[in-house]
Simulated scan of single mutants.
Amino acid sequence: MEDKKRLAYSIIQFLHDQLHNGDLSSDAQESLEVAIQCLETAFGVSMEERGLAVSQTLPEIFAAATLKEPPSVRVTSEPILPSDDDLAEAERLKSEGNEHMKTENFEGAVSCYTKSLELNPSNAVYFCNRAAAYSKLGNYMGAVRDCERAISIDPGYSKAYGRMGLALSSLNKYTEAVSYYKRALDLDPDNETYRSNLKIAELKLKELPSPGAAPPSFDLAGWLNNPGFMSMDVCARLYHAEADFFLESKASNLMNNPQVQQLMTGMISGNQNPMGGAAAGANPSSNDLSSLIQAGQQFAQQMQQQNPELIEQLRSQMRSRTPSSSNDEQQ
């Protein structure tokens, strides 16, 4: 118990010295006074008990103790730098991750880039590459976090801004995406991919409804009750690849095309081929699903032969409205 009192006395003595010579704020001084009172009460000691004093002050005892420690035990504020072997292995893992990206093994790529970061956590390229793999897997928030880390390490890394724009666009955060694409272009003005994706994000931003605006109405019951609704299956085989485009653009631009208007009129009529004749094999009143699918396939082939320009137009417009990651290979 005597040793504990002597230790407590040394601590209290140190706090007294800091209180009078430490150049502390009034709040800090008040806190030290409270600490001194608590220690004196807890251990039953006071500064008047000079017999508890030791030959060295607490800072002197601490300094002597740290000098006796081996260098490997000492804790410093300097970061531990990776060894040359660690750097080489991190690069090898990154290259392996790049090969996984080429073969679309995105889970394997994430694993390799993660191991690279464990060996060298200050490499912006590793974070940016893993962001690309996360985006391919649909983990857009993970991609955003990795892009943020890459930018914090290297604020001049254009590819990190471009990939951040892609991830934010996928999250429908077009305002932020536009900002990052612009920054990417500032750093790499000749990159056509960034320029194209910026235009797409700006177009998407314009299509967003104004705050407080009522959503557009859609008479679903009317469509379902229309006898021509079933004939929409006839066209499903024709532009199944274009379906996402219709949903994405809400068909607002294409509906002004006379050829598309003719096609949709035929679909709604139910009994008439949009190209001017009865759909081969089509029977709107039939419940035979296989016959309906067969009729759709026949109509798709006929449409492709008679109006290939319309099909190519749909495909071209869909490609122009999709953000691209081309010319954005892994480093």
Rank of each mutant, 00 (worst) to 15 (best):
Asp86Trp: 05
Ser116Cys: 00
Phe127Ser: 10
Asn120Gly: 01
Tyr157Val: 01
Tyr134His: 15
Thr114Ser: 11
Phe127Val: 03
Phe127Ala: 03
Ala131Pro: 06
Glu89Phe: 13
Arg130Thr: 08
Leu117His: 00
Gly108Leu: 12
Pro82Phe: 01
Ser72Asp: 04
Asp154Tyr: 09
His100Ser: 15
Pro155Gln: 07
Phe127Gln: 00
Phe106Thr: 10
Asn120Pro: 01
Asn139Ser: 13
Pro155Met: 05
Ser95Thr: 12
Glu78Ile: 03
Glu78Thr: 09
Asp84His: 13
Glu96Pro: 01
Asn123Thr: 04
Phe106Cys: 01
Cys112Lys: 03
Ser77Met: 08
Val73Leu: 09
Tyr140Leu: 07
Ala133His: 01
Val110Thr: 06
Leu93Asn: 09
Lys94Thr: 02
His100Tyr: 13
Ser77Trp: 14
Asp146Glu: 13
Glu91Gln: 14
Asn123Ala: 03
Glu99Cys: 10
Ala90Asn: 00
Val110His: 01
Ala133Val: 12
Ala143Gln: 04
Ser111Pro: 00
Asn98Pro: 02
Ala132Pro: 00
Ile151Cys: 13
Leu137Ser: 09
Cys147Gly: 02
Glu91Phe: 02
Asp146Ala: 00
Arg149Phe: 02
Glu107Arg: 14
Asn105Glu: 06
Glu118Tyr: 14
Ile153Leu: 15
Arg130Trp: 05
Ala88Lys: 12
Pro121Leu: 09
Leu81Trp: 13
Phe106Glu: 11
Asn129Leu: 07
Asn98Trp: 07
Glu148Asp: 15
Asn98Ala: 10
Ala132Asp: 00
Glu99Leu: 11
Pro79Met: 10
Glu107Pro: 05
Lys136Gly: 04
Leu87Ala: 08
Glu89Asn: 14
Val144Pro: 10
Glu91Met: 08
Gly97Cys: 06
Lys115Gly: 07
Glu148Pro: 05
Cys112Glu: 10
Pro155Tyr: 01
Met101His: 06
Ser77Cys: 14
Phe106Val: 01
Cys128Thr: 15
Arg130Ala: 02
Asn98His: 07
Glu99Gln: 14
Phe127Met: 02
Ser158Tyr: 08
Gly142Asp: 03
Ala150Glu: 08
Arg92Glu: 06
Leu119Gly: 09
Ala124Tyr: 07
Ala133Gly: 07
Ala133Gln: 02
Ala109Tyr: 09
Phe106Gly: 03
Glu91Ser: 11
Leu93Ala: 08
Leu81Cys: 01
Ser152Glu: 15
Cys112Ile: 07
Gly108Thr: 15
Asp86Cys: 06
Met141Ile: 04
Ser77His: 04
Thr76Met: 10
Asp85Ala: 15
Val75Ala: 12
Thr76Ile: 11
Arg145Gln: 13
Tyr157His: 11
Asp84Glu: 15
Ser158Ala: 15
